[in-house]
């Protein structure tokens, strides 16, 4: 386990979600499911975050916001699409102002479906995300080592 995966900090952004998944993301971190006991901490600052929880689909207006938050996060980083809207657009997939799932804007590592996504699913998704985080960290280290050797 890498240092980040022991206590993954998450940032949450509401794309064009109906709030159902947002309150479930918060409920995951609150008493009842208590994600914080695993060291999962919610932060508002993209630079502090390891895992990006996105709810809702992307549209013309928020696609740049989603990209900007993603770009601000430091490597290694993991994106979790929370809820079916973030995965594919869900019930709103054929609305005129919906482009589609979050993967239309940024690369997604873990898909957590559900309408609304259940806290149990979210905890599973974060655990799966932590594994990806470790892999990405190892790959980054390998890259650095290779670069050092070349020098």
């Amino acid at each position: 386990m890498g240092y980040a995966s022991r206590s993954p900090w998450v940032i949450h952004y509401d794309g064009s979600s109906c709030n159902g998944c947002d309150i479930e993301v918060l409920a995951t971190l609150c008493p009842g499911f208590d994600g914080e006991r695993f060291g999962v901490v919610n932060t508002g600052n993209p630079k502090h975050a390891d895992i990006f929880l996105v709810t809702g689909s992307v549209n013309e207006q928020n696609i740049d916001v989603v990209r900007q938050i993603y770009d601000q996060m430091v490597e290694p980083k993991v994106v979790v699409a929370c809820g079916i809207c973030a995965c594919s657009g869900g019930v709103f997939h054929d609305c005129y102002n919906v482009i589609g799932g979050v993967d239309q804007a940024i690369p997604v590592d873990v898909y957590a479906p559900g309408c609304a996504v259940r806290p149990e699913t979210l905890i599973d998704a974060i655990v799966a995300g932590v594994k990806v985080l470790d892999e990405k960290e190892a790959a980054l280290k390998e890259q650095k080592r290779a670069a050092k050797k070349e020098r």
Partner: peptide
């Protein structure tokens, strides 16, 4: 007010 991908979507 709204930034939408097509103009006046409700009239289509």
């Amino acid at each position: 007010f709204y930034r939408v991908s097509e103009e006046y979507p409700m009239t289509i």
